[in-house]
Write a protein that binds this DNA or RNA. Structure first.
Lengths: 187, 187
DNA sequence: TTCAAACTGTACCGATCTGTAATCTTTTAC
DNA sequence: GTAAAAGATTACAGATCGGTACAGTTTGAA
């Protein structure tokens, strides 16, 4: 059980898929970009789809970990952490090579709701919703599920908007809207 | 100037691209699904990309027309029309064959900001923002641009959320959030 | 009726797609 | 030191990709 080479493949494939898209990235491109032979790839994963699923699994883990940690670092109270989500998103949007949400893109290319890739994208979003709902509970908000879903609407909107380059500061605007929504929920 | 056959092609191609995706839809599939010969296609459009651009152009026109008209039908005052946008979205989400926003999907497959397809997707969103901002002006809101962008964040979030099947009623939840945001803006 | 434009069908091009086979080299474990 | 596992290389299969060539058919207007 030496997972290093396999993990290296998944990590590098993740980057290429994120930058290039899924259908647009062929296995030969992957060989070139990762330096890993096609034979090895197909020993670890029986199909391209399985490799994509593994890449999405890694992305889910890394992204959720990063976002949750960053929210904790940026604020102390649960309520402030909810607001700080948009500060974290702003940092993400400004990263070089930012290309939107990997799961939105994957579910755009594999649209059928019964497709494994589509389902895994939905899982990612659900796990995030659970965490945000938990924070809203700790913040003592009366309907934590509702405020969590509202904040996540703003989050998804900000991601799409920033990827399309439609606003100067979508994360900042979403943050101000989130503050207003939190205030409205407290009344 | 007989646009019938060409328009028929664009209309049918639009449907296939929307349901199947862009890279995933080959020209041979298009021949089968539209009943139009490949020769004719390539007489009207020099490349697949040009056909996609024409399909997106049609989609932009049809969708914006539909949404703006529906908002007017569903409410009388400009402010109520802004809220009614989410009722219209709800109708859209419930249509059979609903598969999310065509422009989000197109910009997900053609990610580069300088790509013509990506740029046309951004144009669509900008035209919509202009209209919503105009409505917010008519409603007498002090910062119409801000409220328009906030409502559109909710809209994009609701579209993504509904496509992924994450909530029972994303349009309804976005609508309630929009009402709170409008109230906060009036204070 | 005639003639040109528009359209169809079919066959094809070279490139690329996912995935496999066979052979050779490197790494790892005992 | 040696056997076995893992990886690299190359070539290739069969299908599909975007796009073209060419000959035949339908359509519409004068």
């Amino acid at each position: 059980m030496r997972p290093t080479k396999r993990d290296e493949l998944v990590q590098k494939a993740l980057t290429v898929f994120y930058q290039n898209g899924f259908h647009a990235t062929g296995m030969d491109t992957l060989v070139k970009q990762t330096g890993i032979s096609k034979t090895s790839m197909y020993k670890h994963f029986r199909t391209k789809e399985e490799l994509i699923l593994a890449a999405l699994r890694l992305r889910d883990e890394k992204f959720r970990n990063w976002l949750c940690r960053r929210m904790e670092e940026l604020a102390d109270t649960p309520k402030d952490q909810l607001v700080a989500m948009f500060d974290a998103l702003d940092e993400w949007f400004k990263e070089p090579g930012y290309k939107g949400c990997m799961f939105v893109k994957a579910s755009s290319e594999y649209q059928d709701a019964s497709h494994p890739i589509h389902m895994q994208c939905a899982d990612h979003k659900r796990l995030l919703e659970r965490h945000i709902t938990g924070l809203a509970e700790k913040a003592g908000i009366s309907d934590p599920g509702q405020i969590a879903r509202r904040l996540l609407l703003l989050k998804e909107g900000a991601i799409v908007t920033s990827h399309l380059g439609l606003a100067d500061n979508p994360a900042g605007e979403a943050k101000l809207a989130a503050i207003d929504l939190l205030q409205a929920a407290a009344r």
